[in-house]
Design a protein around this nucleic acid. Structure first.
Lengths: 262, 262
DNA sequence: ATCGATCGTTCCGTATATCAGAACGGGCGC
DNA sequence: GCGCCCGTTCTGATATACGGAACGATCGAT
């Protein structure tokens, strides 16, 4: 007995998550390799998931892809999130102001998941997809979410998560990251330049719930050359104001701002 | 041995689909009742699914809800659908023209699933959520999708699916439905008034892929009083043109229209 | 404040359902 | 036409998932 966890269901979940790489179609053998399971096991999993509509088989190629029921379930989750409803028009406004892609992200585990976004109208633009998961320690949204966490959680994060250098500019020293997060709290916004991907810069600000807790971040991302051509103050102000606008729509009142974290 | 299907995974899938009722949170006991499983079994399923992020537990109430990974997976499905990208601006235009809610639906099994929509600006309006599943035989979108299916599939549908009367106006006679579907093919659009829900009317037109096959339907829905106040010809023309606009964006060329079905 | 009902959680023995590997048949490319 | 890799099927040994019962906490009504 390994855990109190159902191994079969765990495998089924791992199989579904294999599609988070955004590959549209995967085969039995390929999945068996990635999950380190027998081909027949994977096949049986797929058969079961197909019967339930979570997965579909392409009759042409024989390969498998996620099914529409998966889409329905995802929309059911979205339907219960306040954030997309509150952020929609603000994101649109932010794009008009800045001309760049902007997105709203929430923390899940040690990552940031974007729950809504608008895309820049420039032909050279950041592609941010809703549902995309990125690390916290090297993105502007992630830094905001991390900065406003209670101190013990922030420290636990640094003890738990290795700061892998995704580029030469990624902050890998925990002390330096902590110092930067303190700076984020004092100035009210975060920045990440070249830290997750070379050539990409972003700036983020907090979104608060009625209790004043930071529950999400709103950010603008751009190619670094265009990013540098705009005064940072100007962009920071636009993003911070957008964050406050979304917060107000969530029921937050400005005077209830807490002093520091959480 | 019942099937070649994994009972545990099947139960996990059924558990997830219990949330398609759009209830945000469900408890162990409640789920056990609905799925007709032991409480401990459901609890173990939930523990496993929680560990994988497909489900989250509310630490306050102890109840469970769908997790963010579910949202990610749903977005992964959306990312591979051409339809939302092609339909977005057309839906917006259709709302401007008609002032009513409009949506794009695809067939899945014996139902229609809405994959995209825009909402009316009237305060009294139809609430259509993306990811919502509705029957085919009593909705305008469903009638379109059914009408353009190959004859044998259409007949198989009628043999398989009971035409349950959701309102007194639901068409329950297979012959009458077949006749109506023939009419849909000749005029190029479908209508459903009071058939799924009293007080609701809708009108739909086909969306075609480059081969000319009908792969989706676009529809406008409204409260019946407002619906009646607009000449039907006018609305039908707007919806049909919207369907053609989306079809063109999918790569369909008008002259390639097939004569009748598929 | 107290009782009762119901919640989520844990434990455990039995029985059954799950696993991996090998074998099969079809399709594609060399 | 040959070989490779695909998805699928079968089988027996074994691990694993099941449900009933018991526990502690919580909420609502009395």
């Amino acid at each position: 007995m390994t855990d109190a966890t159902l191994s079969t269901v765990r495998n089924a979940a791992r199989l579904l998550k294999a599609f988070l790489t955004r590959e549209e179609e995967l085969g039995v053998s390929e999945l068996a390799r990635r999950l380190d399971l027998g081909k027949s096991t994977v096949h049986r999993l797929l058969t079961t998931l197909t019967a339930e509509g979570l997965v579909q088989q392409d009759p042409r190629t024989g390969g498998y892809r996620l099914g529409i029921v998966m889409f329905e379930l995802g929309e059911a989750v979205r339907g219960h999130m306040d954030l997309p409803a509150a952020a929609g028009s603000v994101l649109a406004h932010l794009r008009e102001q800045t001309g760049e892609s902007s997105q709203v992200g929430v923390a899940d585990g040690d990552d940031v998941v974007y729950v809504d976004r608008t895309e820049s109208s420039h032909s050279l633009r950041l592609f941010t997809e809703a549902g995309r998961r990125v690390p916290m320690y090297c993105t502007s949204s992630g830094k905001v979410l991390l900065a406003y966490r209670p101190e013990p959680q922030r420290r636990a994060f640094l003890d738990r998560v290795p700061l892998r250098p995704l580029t030469p500019h990624t902050i890998t020293d925990p002390g330096r990251l902590l110092a930067e997060l303190a700076a984020v709290r004092t100035r009210g916004w975060a920045e990440a330049v070249n830290e997750r991907e070379i050539g990409v810069a972003s700036l983020a600000a907090p979104i608060r719930d009625p209790a004043g807790s930071v529950v999400a971040a709103i950010s603008v991302g751009a190619p670094i050359t265009r990013y540098r051509s705009v005064p940072r103050r100007r962009m920071a102000q636009a993003v911070v104001e957008a964050g406050e606008a979304v917060s107000r729509r969530l029921g937050w009142a400005p005077e209830s701002t807490p002093t520091k974290e959480s």
